[in-house]
Design a protein around this nucleic acid. Structure first.
Ligand SMILES: NC(=O)c1ccc[n+]([C@@H]2O[C@H](COP(=O)([O-])OP(=O)(O)OC[C@H]3O[C@@H](n4cnc5c(N)ncnc54)[C@H](O)[C@@H]3O)[C@@H](O)[C@H]2O)c1
Ligand SMILES: NC(=O)c1ccc[n+]([C@@H]2O[C@H](COP(=O)([O-])OP(=O)(O)OC[C@H]3O[C@@H](n4cnc5c(N)ncnc54)[C@H](O)[C@@H]3O)[C@@H](O)[C@H]2O)c1
Lengths: 241, 241
DNA sequence: GTGACTTTGTGCGCGTATTCACAAGGGTTA
DNA sequence: TAACCCTTGTGAATACGCGCACAAAGTCAC
């Protein structure tokens, strides 16, 4: 009603639900797809379908950033892209270092999906002298001893850990000590970090196990095979008697 | 109280919360670590710490599988490993096919963490003739044209999609048509599948964007920089007037 | 055998997330 | 200008997950 429309970010302030934050990148991706197809305006229904969510959820998510839609019309794609990008912090570049340049590390190093979202890989570090010096995707692998220097000199703000599990906590402690407060961990270990540091993990093995659980259910469930657990003798008490 | 202890899986039947299922693999990993160190018994407190969760949550999670602890003592590591493995369906092997053998696909192909959990990679498929025939980790890459045969002949039950985004939905449709009901997707697209098919996605870019969001918050939030959006002219209405 | 001690299993209250359903708001057309 | 249509933004209801706190249940020492 007020002629002077309230400034941007109306209720955006603090407190966007974590579940919403996790979906914003999905909306953003869908919006980029619409942009590429030259679509200028999109309804919550269409965008929700493209993002694979319920349209009410989409609207509520977007409402957390402010009132950026037009009733009766929908959302302006370009504007929404900008607002979500800003909210996620993608209007600036983020400097990433990848630690552990093995099978996975080098796949990550060459991945184009990083740069296109404003994540700039500024360092590849490894402990193996046979790998140090090697050039991967136009960048030389450096020795892990230089970790602290690299982080400080290049203002690394996100560390990607792709070392074996045993080395991950040690590496994590070092990057945190060096001032990094965001870590993406691929090693199958629970990293412990001080308050104020965010860790996100990607664990393939866990994903497969979750799939296996559901797959088993579809196939008839764990009740499907009649014989009890083939465990050691002292477990029989739990079976019957 | 009943002398005849109720059969295994007391309330295990149907209905283990999804959140619990997602944590069981973490507990399992922690338990394997304890096994390697020769620990025979563990309390919920210890295991919870190792798994990075609250001990009450751990106990409640385990209670969904049945009453497998001993009050005053804790849980027998070996027995718990077996029960969780059984619940997750890891007492049998699962046959996996990896589709798209690029940077990421070949990292996955050589990953030892699969086999150690009972996931057997039985096929590597790609559309690029330059890659087909190549041997990776002791397995020859096959042409995507043979997808349906491979799935049928080797009883593939889990498909891992590591193709470019544009090809993912097409590949997904084919594996689903071929009878696969579990898909792990690395391509940055929302896959649409019929009911009864489970899709889990791993999206690095999303993880980084979530980290960026929190990183930005720590640095002072989106209110940190005073100038309004540098957007096109027709957005100024939303800025002020 | 008994009592003290330890740890499980869970009832309960709380906060968060999801979904429905609709009034309010803006565009559009005659 | 006015009536109509479409879509947003959100109140309210529901479902879900989390963690505290404690009684029940078992062990262990003596
Ligand atoms: N390859 C996959 O597909 C895959 C999948 C899921 C999880 N992972 C996990 O990702 C991690 C890396 O996997 P990978 O297959 O690339 O392993 P890898 O053995 O090929 O590579 C690990 C690299 O880390 C380096 N490294 C070891 N200790 C280090 C240290 N202290 N500092 C710096 N670098 C160090 C090694 O020299 C090696 O180059 C592992 O924890 C693995 O469990 C891998
Ligand atoms: N590399 C990474 O670190 C990384 C990280 C996150 C996500 N991803 C995603 O994973 C996917 C694969 O990434 P990548 O870096 O390995 O890409 P890539 O280009 O190196 O490999 C893709 C492979 O898929 C094959 N392919 C293309 N169309 C196919 C089809 N219809 N059927 C079968 N195979 C086909 C190509 O021949 C190629 O070998 C992409 O969607 C990418 O966005 C990759």
């Amino acid at each position: 009603m007020t002629p002077r429309q309230n400034r941007n970010r109306d209720r955006a302030d603090r407190g966007i639900p974590e579940a919403t934050v996790a979906r914003l990148p999905v909306y953003l991706r869908a919006l980029h797809g619409l942009q590429d197809r030259g679509v200028a305006t999109v309804s919550s229904e269409e965008l929700a379908t493209a993002a694979g969510v319920n349209s009410a959820k989409l609207r509520k998510d977007l409402s957390h950033l402010g009132s950026y839609g037009t009733r009766g019309v929908g959302y302006e794609v370009e504007y929404l892209v900008y607002q979500i990008s800003r909210e996620l912090g993608l209007t600036q570049d983020w400097v990433v270092a990848i630690i552990g340049v093995g099978n996975l590390g080098r796949a990550l190093a060459g991945y184009g999906g990083f740069a296109s979202r404003g994540f700039r890989v500024a360092g590849l570090l490894d402990a193996d002298d046979a790998i140090v010096g090697e050039e991967i995707s136009g960048m030389a692998v450096e020795h892990i001893d230089r970790l602290e220097e690299v982080i400080a000199e290049r203002s690394v703000s996100i560390a990607v850990i792709a070392t074996p599990a045993g080395a991950a906590q040690g590496v994590c402690d070092r990057v945190v000590a060096a001032g990094v407060t965001s870590v993406l961990n691929f090693a199958p270990v629970v990293l412990s970090v001080p308050d104020g540091v965010d860790v996100r993990k990607v664990d393939l093995s866990i994903e497969l196990q979750i799939l296996a659980f559901h797959e088993q259910r579809k196939a008839g469930g764990p009740d499907g095979y009649g014989d009890g657990p083939p465990g050691p003798a002292h477990y029989v008490e739990a079976v019957d008697a």
